[in-house]
Design a protein around this nucleic acid. Structure first.
Length: 602
RNA sequence: UGCCGGAUGGUGUAAUGGUAGCACGGCAGACUCUGGAUCUGCCUGUCUAGGUUCGAAUCCUAGUCCGGCAGCCA
């Protein structure tokens, strides 16, 4: 077994491997020689889109696989046909692939397409096993719990034969009532002592489709007096005559999560089954099932960590679905959504999301992570990687009166001051340019460093200009600023080193590209939107503003693989709806704006 | 209050009997052809009460508070 590799998700070889209580356990297990290979799994139910909380789990499970040179199986936990859909299967695969690409994609466990577990013999005992596909195999697909329905059924039969499971004829309401409450006593099923033969016959007939939905269940025979609700003869199979997205009409009985999950882990040879805290009370059941089946191979073990919460958003699938269904957002991948697809569309690099997962840590304590932590990591990443460009979001025209009508020159601009290798580009400059409306004020407050009547400001990479005249329309709206340039003040010129307080961005009016720019902000107005009352009352009405912007011409060749910083404004990414000639950019985040903060104080 | 967990600055997270550290955040300043970045300084913490120990965030006892569990959901 290899030692953990020492590299961070962001920058191989730089930062040390994270440590947390789960990795400590894995490390100890490895040191004790307990496993040949560490195998984890990421097991989403395909009933919704993956969100940033899943990203934490993906980074944990794949991170461990990566650090210990093991494997992480992607598995659809699809035991409830009424809630699941292939749309979700597809999106989950896409999101996982995006998040682990060039990081842990060599650790991704998939299986040969269509393959189900093999019957094998271990130490003379019959067993079921399904290993991963050869990475070079042509047709692969994720693991599916539903591919094990036959094996899980066989295991259930074994439990019945051992007298450890029985068919129960009570209705759901009866079972509910008889189970008792956490502090209330239970009443055993009237069918608890049914003979093995009768249960066997009934269970086989359940499978054969002889009984309607809800008429019977298979229950594990554990302990109705257990203080743990989940040990009070839990239902392990229910009847559901419905089409399954993966197995079609092959089955009309479906195993419950608790029964299917531990066995799926076992079949795949999972060593560490990592899930969130709410499954902690299920662990005795997880262990009970595996132990009572007398399985020949080493058993997987379940470990629980605290799920992620982030301020200014909601995380529950139900609420996210509500936002989508009620058209509060445009879809699961709306850039304001905390879904992985939304975050991707927003322009956040996978690398930054991984770094976030890495930085927040893994513990057992409930917590709410400040969204500022995410924002900080995204800014840090984008500052290093984004190409600088000039763009004006809310334009007002500046005419430089001491330049000839047909004046055009190419100005040298730096692509990324943080990365000299990114080089430079030419930006056209002419007599008329657009500047930001915010960058001019007729009667500015103190500490305002930008353009004002009679004042000077530098046009980034260009000349220092002085505002001579403010032209307004009949309504009093400023339509144009007439300025003169200090023609010697450009870089290399005699007055280039003159100090002026402000530098502003601009775009040549004659060369500007028109683009729709979507300015996204937080979806909610309060840090904990579901803390009390209706979360929909906390929706930020200004979470999206679309502006018609003027952009420098080089952006005509913008790529969705690239990230851009529009100087002084923020980070932007090309939206997938964008088309040649109809550019659409999404604002990932604004730059940190100390001027805005200064203004808020007063 | 049955069972299972958890409590370290405003937030998140380290310290595994030996100087309570890091990051975010906030505040102040330096620098700057991005009011960005960078740099400097400051701010605030071991749930409570006992005990063990030369020494306790860490071990023990009692308590307090918070979260989870009563789907034929996962």
């Amino acid at each position: 077994m290899a030692n953990p590799t020492h590299s961070s998700p962001a920058d191989a070889g730089a930062a040390p491997t994270p440590t947390d209580f789960i990795r400590d356990i894995v490390t100890a297990n490895v040191a004790a020689g307990k496993y040949q290979k560490i195998v984890t799994r990421f097991p989403p139910e395909p009933n919704g889109y993956l969100h940033i909380g899943h990203a934490k789990s993906i980074c944990l499970n794949f991170g461990i696989a990566r650090e210990f040179r093991g494997r992480c199986n992607l598995r659809m936990d699809d035991t409830n046909p009424t809630k699941e859909d292939v749309e979700y299967v597809d999106s989950i695969q896409q999101d996982v692939n995006w998040l682990i690409e060039d990081w842990a994609d060599d650790r991704l466990g998939l299986k040969p397409k269509g393959k189900t577990p093999e019957a094998i013999t271990v130490n003379g005992q019959p067993d079921f096993y399904l290993g991963p596909a050869d990475p070079s195999a042509a047709a692969v697909e994720p693991f599916y719990a539903s591919d094990y329905f036959e094996q899980i059924y066989q295991y259930a039969l074994q439990l019945v034969r051992k007298g450890k499971a029985y068919v129960c004829d009570h209705t759901a309401e009866e079972v509910d009532k008889m189970r008792g409450a956490p502090e209330k006593a239970s009443e055993p099923s009237h069918y608890r002592d049914r003979s093995v033969e009768e249960s066997l016959d009934l269970f086989q007939r359940m499978r054969a489709g002889e009984f309607p939905d809800g008429s019977r269940t298979l229950r594990a025979k554990i302990d109705m007096a257990s203080p743990n609700i989940w040990m009070r003869d839990p239902v392990i199979y229910r009847i559901r005559h419905s089409e399954h997205h993966h197995t079609g009409a092959a089955w009309c009985i479906y195993p419950m999560y608790d029964f299917a999950h531990c066995l799926s882990d076992y079949i795949e040879g999972i060593t560490h089954s990592i899930c969130t805290l709410e499954f902690e009370v299920h662990r005795p059941l997880y262990d009970w099932i595996l132990e009572n089946l007398g399985l020949p191979r080493p058993l997987p073990h379940q470990f629980e960590f605290a799920r992620l919460n982030v301020t200014f958003t909601v995380m529950s699938k139900r609420k996210l679905l509500q936002l989508v269904n009620e058209k509060i957002v445009t879809g699961w991948d709306d850039p304001r959504m905390p879904t992985i697809s939304g975050i991707r569309r927003r322009g956040v690099p996978a690398r930054a999301l991984r770094q976030f997962a890495y930085n927040i840590g893994v513990t057992k304590r409930d917590s709410v992570t400040d969204v500022a932590v995410l924002e900080n990591i995204v800014r840090e990443d984008l500052n290093r990687h984004a190409l600088r460009r000039l763009g004006v979001l809310r334009p007002v025209k500046v005419v430089i009166t001491n330049l000839p009508e047909d004046h055009v020159e190419e100005i040298n601009a730096i692509n990324n001051p943080e990365d000299p290798a990114a080089g430079t580009r030419k930006v056209p400059f002419s007599r008329a340019v657009w500047i930001e409306r915010d960058d001019f004020m007729e009667t500015p407050p103190p500490k305002y460093f930008r353009l004002r009547p009679g004042g000077e400001v530098r046009l980034k990479y260009g000349y220092i200009i002085k505002c001579d005249e403010v032209v307004k329309d009949a309504a009093g709206q400023i339509v144009e600023l007439r300025c003169t340039a200090d023609l010697g003040s450009k870089a290399g010129g005699p007055t280039a080193n003159r100090k002026v307080k402000g530098t502003i961005h601009w775009v040549s009016a004659a060369h500007a590209l028109e683009a729709d720019v979507r300015l996204y902000d937080r979806l909610f107005t309060v840090a904990e939107p579901d803390a009390e009352g209706d979360f929909k009352k906390r929706i930020n009405p200004h979470s999206l503003e679309t502006v018609a912007a003027k952009l420098e011409p080089s952006l005509a060749k913008a790529s969705d693989a690239e990230r851009y910083q529009f100087e002084r404004l923020g980070y932007f990414a090309l939206d997938p709806d964008s088309q040649p000639g109809r550019l659409i950019f999404n604002r990932t985040l604004t730059l940190r704006d100390t001027w805005a903060r200064e203004q808020q104080k007063s």
